[in-house]
Design a protein around this nucleic acid. Structure first.
Lengths: 112, 112
DNA sequence: CATCGTTATATTTTTAAAACTATAACGATC
DNA sequence: GATCGTTATAGTTTTAAAAATATAACGATG
């Protein structure tokens, strides 16, 4: 038996708009310079990936990606500075929660 | 924007076997003395509720409910002492995680 | 100005979870 | 021994999320 924790960010209407999926997706965009390639790399449909980004951007009030359409390469997507900062914060929050949770679990379920 | 955290217990094969659903369900059993009524009270199908209980019991290695079949009332389900203790531990763990997470969120997303 | 692979949108199909239905066994009570 | 409402199991249906498909717009490049 082991503990698993998930952390999300919800809007004020109680709807989820950010979590591990979007976070990984943004990392993929950073790595590949393409939302399509980022989605493919994690086995996600492009349409879903696009919806994720738009959903999060709507709630956050700033753009997560800059998009270039056209050009020989077809274009691409790139993280905005705000996106990079936000991802950093989310990951700090997530990791600190994970670490705290692990300690609490040990204290409660494995105390001797 | 607000943080939401969920905590689960997984088995060693990486399969979830306990979380908020089963926890609420066990509270319902305690309250109603009936798995059927407990499931109904939370809008859950009885078959799903039964599967939940059996799944958790299988992993934990002890019974969560004692079942009485038959009798004028039809029977009923009641929590074992082990179940009550386990629910208490889970809720302590969950609540401590929630509280820790809220503090971490404030520190990271609302620092000034 | 034709080509390329992307972004973007709308629609359809697939899939898996959840819910529902049907049926049987049970046994204290009357 | 008939009745009742539960536990229990199997099979079916519904539903919503995910995935897949189709199509258009875009524009730097050669």
């Amino acid at each position: 038996m082991k503990p698993v924790m998930r952390v999300f960010l919800y809007d004020d209407e109680g709807e989820k708009f950010f979590g591990e999926g979007p976070c990984r997706l943004l990392h993929g965009v950073e790595q590949y310079g393409s939302l399509k390639k980022a989605a493919e790399s994690m086995g996600m449909a492009y349409t879903k990936a696009l919806a994720m980004i738009k959903r999060a951007e709507k709630e956050l009030g700033f753009s997560l990606t800059e998009k270039m359409i056209g050009g020989k390469s077809g274009g691409g997507s790139y993280l905005t500075p705000e996106a990079k900062e936000f991802v950093k914060k989310y990951e700090s929050y997530r990791d600190a929660c994970y670490q705290a949770g692990a300690g609490i679990y040990r204290a409660i379920f494995q105390k001797q």
